[in-house]
Computed example of a mutant assay.
Amino acid sequence: MYEFIRPFFQFYDKESFEVYAYSLAKEPDDCTNWFKQMADGWRELSPYTPELTAKQIWEDEIDILFDLAGHTADTGLPALAWKPAPVQISGLGYMTTTGLSAVDYFLTDEFMDPPGEHEEDFVEKLLHVKSQLCYKSLTDNLPQSSTAPCRERGWVLFGAFNGYHKITDEMLFAWKRILDEVPASKILFKCQVFFAPSMKLAAYNRFKRIGFEMNRVILEPATREYMNRYLDVDIALDTYPYPGGGTTCDALYMGVPVISRYSDRHSTRFAYSILQNVGVGELATDSLEGYIERAVAVAKDWDLLEYLHRNLRSMMEKSPVMDAKGYMREIEARYREIWERWLEQK
């Protein structure tokens, strides 16, 4: 989430807005320290109850409160039920409605939630921007892909860097079919849980039961240098029904095309929205068979792979997904709109 929250602290209009941050982090780290330095006001609230959290927000006289976590672990969402700010928004960190009538708006975009199609799925009013998120890589000065690795290696390496808990058997069967259709190809799983030998063994046995040829499967733990590992990957395979957000952006930034699947559900459309905004929406499909066919077709078109590896970063940098200043001007325009609306209703 750090890469998506940075614009709210780094590029806001300091002449028109003040930003107060309410941290629920139990142990501060480099990220929280950076946010603390950038904010106009900083509150450490991790030992607080929701009621005391709401009281602090109320005392700070916050006009617009933006929840970035939704129904995730150790969230501050219950504090919003007290309505400590006159206007409250949620978005970015969770894949669906808060279910709280006290939350007024939910941040989204037209690819996540086409206007007029998903309103009934949300308690909140939908607040549309060009791209619901804006990405900034966690690491500066990363090397850029110059070609598809398969050109030099002679075979295609697929990558799945999403959290292991997102990998369903349905997708594993799909990925096996893709490997079967692309001779000599392999798949690299890079997941945090593989630091534990027991989890690595459990995954090995699971993939073997699915029918994978295990000499074509690579299991690696996630590392701080994992971005550089993308330089060895030809194509990233996204998970479903919970696709990647940060991992999708990481892959594209490193020049790796991402094959994704989506449906009508908001929670399935994160990668679809990113791909559409970057200009490669054709890499996403709304069916399992389409997903398999798209992955196989791209894997067999090495000219296309080379083009994407060389150009995806620049395409991404020119898109709404990385236009941090434009993103914040659009967000702030929405702030003004919903604040004026509140004043009129008041």
Score class of each variant (00 low, 15 high):
105 Y>N: 04
94 Y>P: 10
108 T>M: 04
70 G>F: 13
141 N>H: 13
139 T>A: 04
51 E>C: 04
134 C>E: 06
39 A>L: 04
85 A>R: 11
180 D>L: 14
80 L>P: 05
46 S>A: 08
75 T>F: 00
41 G>H: 09
61 E>F: 04
128 H>S: 05
50 P>N: 08
112 M>K: 03
138 L>Y: 00
163 G>V: 06
125 K>C: 06
103 V>S: 01
34 W>K: 06
158 F>H: 01
71 H>P: 10
168 T>V: 09
107 L>W: 10
86 P>E: 01
178 I>P: 13
60 D>T: 04
36 K>N: 14
84 P>Q: 04
159 G>P: 04
87 V>M: 09
86 P>A: 01
50 P>T: 05
38 M>H: 14
151 R>H: 01
54 A>N: 05
149 P>E: 03
164 Y>G: 05
62 I>K: 15
67 D>Q: 12
133 L>K: 09
122 F>W: 14
87 V>D: 03
124 E>D: 14
56 Q>I: 10
62 I>H: 15
142 L>E: 05
50 P>R: 08
133 L>W: 08
80 L>G: 06
117 E>A: 09
101 S>C: 04
42 W>L: 02
168 T>W: 01
60 D>C: 08
55 K>Y: 09
45 L>N: 12
176 K>Y: 09
128 H>C: 14
74 D>E: 14
52 L>A: 02
53 T>F: 12
88 Q>P: 11
79 A>H: 13
165 H>K: 08
165 H>L: 02
70 G>E: 12
118 H>M: 06
63 D>V: 14
74 D>I: 07
35 F>N: 00
106 F>Q: 08
65 L>Q: 08
77 L>V: 02
126 L>D: 10
167 I>V: 06
178 I>F: 02
57 I>V: 13
108 T>A: 05
160 A>P: 03
39 A>E: 08
123 V>L: 04
175 W>K: 06
170 E>W: 00
173 F>E: 00
119 E>F: 03
178 I>W: 02
88 Q>L: 14
167 I>E: 04
116 G>D: 09
111 F>T: 08
163 G>F: 07
78 P>N: 12
58 W>L: 15
82 W>T: 11
103 V>R: 02
96 T>D: 02
66 F>W: 01
53 T>I: 04
68 L>V: 07
88 Q>A: 15
44 E>I: 10
